[in-house]
Amino acid sequence: MKILVAISQVPDTTAKISFTDNNTKFNSAGVQFIINPYDEWYALVRALELKEAGLVEKVSLVHVGLADADAVIRKGLALGADDSFRIDADAPDAQFVAQQLAEFVKNNPYDIVLVGKETISYNGGMVGGILAGLLDWTFVSTASKLDITGNTIMANQDIEGGVQIVECSTPIVISCNKGMAEQRIPNMKGIMAARTKPLQVIPAYTAASHTQYKQFELAAGRSACKFIDADKVEELVQLLHNEAKVI
């Protein structure tokens, strides 16, 4: 069985967000990029664990993006992925990315595609579902546990107010949520090995996109915090009732 892990690169979780070109583009100057945490900590690490357990033969990475993402792809290889592919396109939206992945999978067969449940940059959470819809594959969203027995996939799927335990077969797209695995740090051996592992650049497939960011604006901060004396909690209750009107 072969697993393909789709990764995105996102600004580091502590990055200061700003915009350029008249607030129409994200300002990447001075920003450290990382693999999207959901893609790395949960999807990729779980795929590697399944390989280490002898349940999977191969774990590949795929990224849709430009050459500036090669550093984060190498990090994924350093963590233990066997090989990697970068589909060379400046991806405008989830629909475009999913179409690229669908074409890639049609040309390079995999049994399982893992994606993070969402990116921490644009927070769409759409790529996995669109991909499954395009391919007419099984789709398990927000999985927090993943196991394989023979050809059967077992997953815990987070649902509203609980978890549903499901059994499915391949081919399958799974979007991965917290709980599936724990973050790993690449070791020196992995980092050295990553330098010579394959990173193949593939020209983009023809794909449609219908969305365009016109303008960005930083969220306005809250007005100054109103401090209440620790001995006068009744005052807080009154403010929550009369001023904030939330209780």
């Binding site: 939206d93 989830a94 629909q95 999913a98 669908a102 927070n123 769409g124 959470g125 759409m126 790529v127 996995g128 579902g129 669109i130 991909l131 499954a132 819809g133 395009l134 391919l135 007419d136 789709f139 969203s141 927000t142 987070d158 649902i159 509203e160 979007s175 449609a208 996109s209 219908h210 969305t211």
Partner: peptide, 23 residues
């Protein structure tokens, strides 16, 4: 855009080959 709506909307966008806009 809740846990069920997200999964349904994204699958639907793939089936209909159309744009999906989130949240």
């Amino acid at each position: 855009y809740d846990i069920h709506g997200k999964a349904t909307a994204s699958s639907l966008s793939g089936i209909l080959k159309c744009a999906v806009v989130s949240a």
